[in-house]
Design a protein around this nucleic acid. Structure first.
Lengths: 187, 187
DNA sequence: CCGCTCATGTAACTGGTTACATGATTTA
DNA sequence: TAAATCATGTAACCAGTTACATGAGCGG
């Protein structure tokens, strides 16, 4: 028996949209898109072709509901979570975390390191130096973003951004170690 | 003017396959699939429906070429990089790294933390404790994998696995900080 | 009034996914 | 000889992508 649309698991995008609605309600799809576009992560582009259909799917499953605001300067559908939407977001957050979500890490820099053999020794060093420079920049940006959120209203935005800081710094330390190893290894 | 198939950028999967061929040549598509399946990252499933077409695309672009081994116990197409395949992999590795590849981080645990507001205070602590336990396990596994590769032949496998260790430990430290913050914050 | 932002969408494509299918060879 | 592994694929599907399209309201 094929799974019906309404019992299939929510996609990552749908989950993220659900979370954004929980924070930004009552919000428009347009606002949701901008959150994706403004996010430092480029995992989702926030393209209209993805977000509008995702919102519609969530609405069809009665996880979110719209109130059409006519009072506002322009007509817009503003969404909020329904009771079952609140249940859905709890089910997503409540332990235990699915193993795949904990194991999941995909770092394009690390992927490249695995295949660095294909370069000459000096090319490898140039690669690492470049990666290091960019990683340091990322770490600085993450730190700045975190400080910015620190005094702000939303504790969980701050705690999340702290995760990005830790990750960025770990990448810097790792690349420094890689550099030292390559310098010492027989070219 | 639309980009022709042969000048379009290689997908992440195609790039990863190219890298695997550079390491495992002469190798079969089946071997490539097993590398994905055995990988601790679950980013690619290594499904036949993805890998066989990807290999075929790389072959059509003359980045890899097959020699049909009849001598072997069973017939199989074994691939190696062509000269332009070697150029392609260098172009992928050589600096500068595309900004998107450095910025890219997608951590399902961190994503959840952003929306932890939707839970009650004790539920939040339970979430963090669960995440912490799983993160610690991941860190241990990453460490073990790294030690295993340390004495092995391939330096770059080892250096890559070190990256996973750093990342896993950073996640543990971050979650510990989150826990402390939640304990202190007004419930 | 021109251009920017707000707001909502569609169309064509693509590159993955799961599930299925087949057959040869090795191993218990 | 039965089961596992090696080896290669196809079919249906799906959730993203880019690019395009439209129109209202607002600020310079």
């Amino acid at each position: 028996m094929p799974k019906s649309r309404s019992e299939r698991e929510l996609s990552r995008l749908e989950l993220a949209v659900l979370g954004l609605v929980s924070k930004g309600a009552p919000c428009t799809t347009y606002w949701i898109r901008r959150q994706f576009q403004g996010s430092p992560s480029s995992y989702f582009s926030g393209s209209a072709g993805a977000v509008y259909p995702a919102v519609r799917r969530l609405e069809q499953r009665r996880l979110i509901a719209a109130t059409t605001e006519r009072k506002a300067r322009r007509a817009s559908r503003r969404y909020r979570l329904t009771p079952s939407g609140k249940r859905a977001i709890k089910a997503w957050l409540l332990p235990p975390l699915p193993a795949a979500d904990v194991a999941f890490t995909m770092d394009p820099v690390r992927t490249r390191v695995y295949y660095l053999e294909a370069l000459t020794a000096p090319e490898r060093l140039k690669f690492v130096d470049n990666a290091l420079a960019q990683a340091r920049l990322q770490a600085t940006l993450a730190q700045a973003g975190s400080v910015e959120r620190r005094e702000a209203e939303d504790l969980f935005d701050y705690l999340g951004s702290l995760g990005a800081v830790h990750e960025a710094r770990a990448r810097v330390r790792w690349l420094e170690q890689v550099r030292r190893t390559l310098e010492q290894s027989p070219g």
